[in-house]
């Protein structure tokens, strides 16, 4: 009997992990925060998330002429992450514009997945922030669903428990530190993120808050409020736009923390997470090349 053998290059064993499975893991990790958003802000939050996620997937499917709208799942991740950075009840067209900007300007113009320099969701958020600042800062209180201010500019700051659980005003994904941490555990467990970026980021924010803004309470307030937790766990850790070297990841996290705090203390915006991460994204290739690991057996020249 004639047998046909497959000839291919070694190794002949591979992990089951694919880009799609990694993206699904990220979606799973975002689920607790998504559920928390719906609990605190009601059905409007759900609508916002559905519109952005669907628009992002559709935009990518059209550009790639992909019949399977889910594709590799990366557009869904971008869309959901974008929703997390939006206020709870923006107009529907703002969600659509944001999603299209994220996929087109944030990702596909660079050549698609893996080639983008900046985090697509944050590119979209930055565009929306400068274009429709009013819509982007209309917060509603999760307690009585009336309009409120973000804790970062509010004079009567919420308590820590409130900040930690999420019963406070802010973007969809910014409110519940607990839900974000809970979801991120999955990413840690699956090995998609490690401690360096979130550790560097949160560490610097905490230390600067502690040193310059009222001691321990200041430190805790700064890591629990605004977008720091979402940024440190889900945005700065975006694989494509963060460094691959171990030292580079730590420096990247520290840099994000420093810029975030500079903007919070001295900038015109109350919140600096978006711009901090985007600026550090731009430095990623440089950081990688400056922090190449010492290779095995390297001899001093």
């Amino acid at each position: 009997m004639e047998r046909k053998f497959v000839v291919s290059s070694s190794p002949h064993l591979r992990t089951d992990e694919t880009i799609k499975s990694v993206m699904i893991d990220v979606l799973v990790a975002l689920t607790p925060a998504a559920i928390a958003a719906v609990i605190f802000f009601g059905y409007r939050a759900l609508i916002t998330m559905v519109i952005t996620t669907f628009s992002a997937m559709l935009t990518e499917a059209i550009i790639l002429r992909n019949k399977n709208i889910f594709g590799d799942g990366s557009a869904a991740v971008t869309g959901l992450l974008l929703a997390m950075t939006l206020p709870p009840a923006p107009p529907w067209w703002l969600c659509v514009v944001g999603a299209v900007v994220a996929i087109v300007l944030g990702k596909q113009v660079y050549g698609g997945i893996g080639s983008n320099i900046f985090n697509p969701a944050l590119v979209a958020r930055a565009v929306l922030m400068v274009s429709w600042a009013g819509h982007m800062t209309s917060w509603i209180s999760p307690v009585d669903l009336t309009s409120t201010a973000t804790p970062l500019v509010s004079s009567n700051a919420p308590g820590f428990l409130q900040l930690f659980t999420g019963a406070t005003g802010g973007c969809l994904g910014e409110t519940s530190a607990f839900a974000l941490l809970f979801g991120a555990v999955w990413l840690f467990y699956k090995g998609h993120i490690n401690w360096r970026i979130p550790g560097g980021y949160l560490g610097v924010v905490f230390l600067l808050g502690l040193a310059l803004d009222g001691g321990l309470t200041g430190g805790l307030f700064h890591i629990l409020s605004g977008g720091v937790m979402l940024g440190a766990l889900f945005m700065a850790t975006d694989m494509v736009t963060s460094p691959v070297t171990t030292r580079g990841q730590l420096f990247f996290g520290i840099g994000c923390g420093l810029i975030t705090m500079l903007i919070r203390f001295y900038g015109n915006y109350p919140e600096g997470v978006t711009y901090a991460i985007l600026l550090m994204n731009a430095l990623t290739p440089l950081i990688d090349n400056l922090t190449l690991p010492r290779k095995y057996g390297e001899v001093a020249k």
Binding site: D72, G111, G114, S115, M239, P293, K295, Y296
Partner: peptide, 17 residues
């Protein structure tokens, strides 16, 4: 597929390449 720069290859390389 395109590299997504997850850095897993850097982590596992026994020669630190």
């Amino acid at each position: 597929q395109p590299c997504i720069k997850c850095g897993k290859c850097v982590e596992v390389c026994p020669m630190n390449l």
